[in-house]
Every structure is written in structure tokens, then in C-alpha cells.
């Protein structure tokens, strides 16, 4: 029943062109020799050189990386705990509020999340800087992690865990030896998601950052506000390439893993 009509072909072509041509233009013009971003003046890697000599960008990139590593790790720990509690924890006092607080940040406008965190930091006299950005990012990322991990927890059979307990595992051992290996792919993708969310975030970081700490998105935003610049094009190209390589590599690895699993399952059936 699958029929790829001319209409389907046209809409797929136009659709993917719409998604990718803007980024392609950005990449192409990052190699433009001219300072005028819209006029092509020959191939050059000049802007990459300028970018790597720009201390402010390098500093901001370093801050961003530190924040992303710290916050995605905290978010993964908290988010996995939250998912486990929600799916396996049974009833407890205030469970509805808890699941509401996990769900709400996903749909909360960033301006509100950012504003509320800033007002909290100020009312408890917490100096703003890397630490407060990490707190802010961990909080909203843990909700994403918990959604990803709980969808995995819901879909797998609890009898394996029960079997481990029956066979003499302590609950912690059962978690470490049975549950964790099964949910690990979800935990890893949760970590990656939290990491990218943190790298990407402008609005919440702007509220949570003090004047002394600037993340890369804040830096990009403030220079982009004045107009298009070839250095930002170069920076964008680097970021786009890292993501593209990462996503393509993960999808190849997971494809292979799925194929292997299918093979093993077939072998087990026959054996």
C-alpha cells in the first residue's frame, strides 16, 4: 500500500530542502573571504582563524562545556531516580505533585523558568555564576531525562526484576545487575539530551548567569543582535558538524546493535 507518488516526492524534496538549505548556506558562507556575509569573494578559512584567536569566545565555550558536563550528569542522576520512583515507587504522599513538577518544566516557557530561578537566587543571596547556571540547567534537564528513562522503564517486564529478587539479590543488586543494564540506553540518551539542552540554552542561562560568567549562546546572541557576522558562521559550522557527526555515528551504532539483537534473538529461538 506504500506508494510514493509524485506529490510525495515533491513534498519530501521541498521539505528537506527547507530544513537543510539554510544551514548549508551558513556553512558555505563561513568559508567566504569577504567580511560582507552575503557577497561571495572566494574561499578562505580566515574566519576560523579569527574565531580561535578570539579569547572571549574561547572562554565562553569553556564555561558552556563545564556547565553542560556538570548539569547533564546531575540531571541524569536525578532524572533516573525520579523516573524510577514514578514508575516503580508505588504510592507515596504527594505523588501527584511530584509527577506534575516533572511534567510542568517541559511545557513552561523558558522566560518564566529563567525569571523564577533568578528571583530565587536573589532572594537567598546566592551569587550568580557557573554554579547557578548548573543548578538551573540540572533542574529543567532532569525532567527531560526522567521522561526518556520512564518510557523505557514502563516498557520492560518487571518479572525479570522479581526473578532477581527471588534468586537472592538485594534490591540494590537487582537494580545494578538487571534494571540498570536494561534502561542504560535510555539513560545514555537522556544524558545526551540534557547535555545538548544545556549547550543550547540561551534564555534560562541569561537569567541565571551573573555578569561575570558568559556562556556561548549568550555570547552568540549578543553579537548576533548587531547583525550577521562571518565569525559566527564559522562557529555555527563547527557546532553543526559536531552534532551531525555525533548523530550519524549514534544512529549507525544503534542500527548495528538492533541488527545484532535481532540475530541473537533468532539464534536463541532456533537453538
Amino acid at each position: 500500500m506504500r506508494r510514493l507518488t509524485w506529490f510525495n516526492t515533491v513534498s519530501l524534496t521541498l521539505g528537506f530542502a527547507f530544513l537543510y538549505v539554510p544551514m548549508l548556506i551558513l556553512v558555505v558562507f563561513s568559508f567566504n573571504a569577504s567580511k560582507l556575509v552575503t557577497v561571495w569573494a572566494g574561499f578562505s578559512t580566515r574566519w576560523y582563524g579569527e574565531l580561535f584567536r578570539n579569547e572571549a569566545f574561547l572562554d565562553a565555550a569553556w564555561v558552556t562545556l563545564k556547565v553542560a558536563l556538570a548539569s547533564s550528569t546531575i540531571a541524569t542522576l536525578l532524572g533516573t531516580m525520579a523516573a524510577y520512583v514514578l514508575v516503580r515507587g508505588g504510592r507515596f504522599f504527594g505523588r501527584t505533585l511530584f509527577s506534575g513538577m516533572i511534567y510542568a518544566p517541559l511545557v513552561m516557557p523558558e522566560v518564566i523558568t529563567g525569571l523564577s530561578l533568578l528571583l530565587l537566587f536573589i532572594s537567598i543571596n546566592l551569587d550568580r555564576g557557573i554554579f547557578t547556571i548548573v543548578l538551573a540547567h540540572s533542574t529543567f534537564s532532569m525532567c527531560y531525562v526522567s521522561v526518556v528513562v520512564s518510557s523505557r522503564l514502563v516498557s520492560f517486564d518487571t518479572s525479570v526484576e522479581e526473578a532477581a529478587l527471588d534468586l537472592g539479590c538485594t534490591p540494590f543488586e537487582a537494580f545494578r545487575l538487571v534494571t540498570l543494564p536494561i534502561i542504560l540506553p535510555a539513560v545514555i540518551s537522556g544524558w545526551l539530551l540534557a547535555f545538548t539542552l544545556s549547550l543550547d540554552d540561551l534564555v534560562i542561562a541569561s537569567f541565571a548567569a551573573g555578569p561575570s560568567s558568559t556562556t556561548l549562546p549568550i555570547k552568540i546572541f549578543s553579537s548576533v543582535r548587531l547583525g550577521v557576522s562571518p565569525e559566527i558562521n564559522a562557529l555555527s559550522t563547527i557546532m553543526i558538524s559536531i552534532v551531525a557527526v555525533g548523530v550519524i555515528a549514534t544512529s549507525l551504532v544503534s542500527k548495528r546493535a538492533i541488527a545484532r539483537q535481532a540475530r541473537e534473538e533468532r539464534a536463541a529461538m532456533q537453538g
Partner: peptide, 22 residues
Amino acid sequence: MMLVILPFWTSFLIRVYAWMGI
């Protein structure tokens, strides 16, 4: 599927910025 998800992983800010030049 991967081609649809890929932009989601790239920076939101950069995707908006790309249109400024266009």
C-alpha cells in the same frame, strides 16, 4: 527519521540565526 531529528539536536539559536542572513 534521522534527517528530521538532526536539526533538533543542532543549536536552536544557530538555526534562527541562519535565517538572518537569508
